[in-house]
């Protein structure tokens, strides 16, 4: 049971993130929701590669014994880098939206101006 806690955390994070994206009206909160989903997926990848009592997979300075599987960690690293780029892009778009509307609330944006 105790080993399943990370998986429950993954599900929890993804659901929290999704509900933030769906129900929040503030653009920054939507972005926070997306990053929470991202963390959930990354946690899932890391958990897949972890074995109980394992050490970091560094061959040259390993104390021996079980090592964690490095491939999911490499995947996570890539995913984090992509996540940073996406978050930066989203925030820069939000800056432009805020400059134009003077608000971050999606309900107050609108109007048919170009």
């Amino acid at each position: 049971m105790i080993a399943n806690i990370p998986y429950l955390a993954v599900v929890g994070l993804i659901i929290i993130g999704l509900s933030a994206v769906i129900f929040k009206k503030n653009l920054i909160k939507i972005i926070i929701g997306i990053t929470i989903i991202q963390s959930g997926v990354n946690l899932f990848l890391i958990t897949l590669g972890y074995r109980e009592g394992s050490t970091a997979p560094i061959w040259t300075s390993s104390p021996g014994g079980v090592m964690a599987f490095p491939v999911p960690q490499a995947l996570t690293l890539t995913s984090i880098v992509i996540g940073v780029a996406v978050t930066a892009l989203m925030l820069s778009l939000v800056i432009h939206l805020y400059r134009h509307h003077g608000t971050l609330d999606v309900r107050k944006m609108g109007g048919d101006d170009q």
Partner: peptide, 20 residues
């Protein structure tokens, strides 16, 4: 043009969640 920015934001939110 604010409508373009809105379209871009909508697209990136939807496609990032899809990619995740």
């Amino acid at each position: 043009k604010v409508k373009s920015v809105e379209a871009g934001f909508k697209y990136i939110v939807v496609s990032t969640i899809g990619a995740l």
